[in-house]
Amino acid sequence: MSGAFTKSMARNIFYGGTVFFFLLFLALSFDTHQALPKRDHRAEITPQIAHGKKLVEVNNCIGCHTLMGEGAYFAPELGNAIARLGGREGIKGFIKSRPAEGIPGRRSMPQFNFSDDDLEAIAAYLEHVNKIDDANWPPNIQG
């Protein structure tokens, strides 16, 4: 029976291999969980930053932007936006100044009519994201 290939053997390998690699993945995930606090600065998360994250979510910012490279590719990266736009004031000024009817012929961010507190929260959140140790990504300030 040279080169026999039984279905039951193939099935056993499938189940064994799947469990094996899933356990390995869990082990790595566990290690990641242990290592994360040093990289994500979770201790510094204030209610304001949490509120900023929520605002970024419920306004679907990643529907146009990327955040640490994930999201849509229609508008610039947000992870380092605080550095690119010159700090919190730069971010707030930019968001506030978007024309409600857009810019003729060009892409434009909608006018969200945020309150000052909300703007401050968004800026705080983006400042927090910029500090996360993400292995020096993006390669340069342009995102």
């Binding site: 040279s2 080169g3 026999a4 290939f5 039984t6 053997m9 193939a10 390998i13």
Partner: peptide
């Protein structure tokens, strides 16, 4: 002859 199942 190959010893064992081809699948392995």
């Amino acid at each position: 002859r190959l010893a064992g199942d081809l699948a392995i």
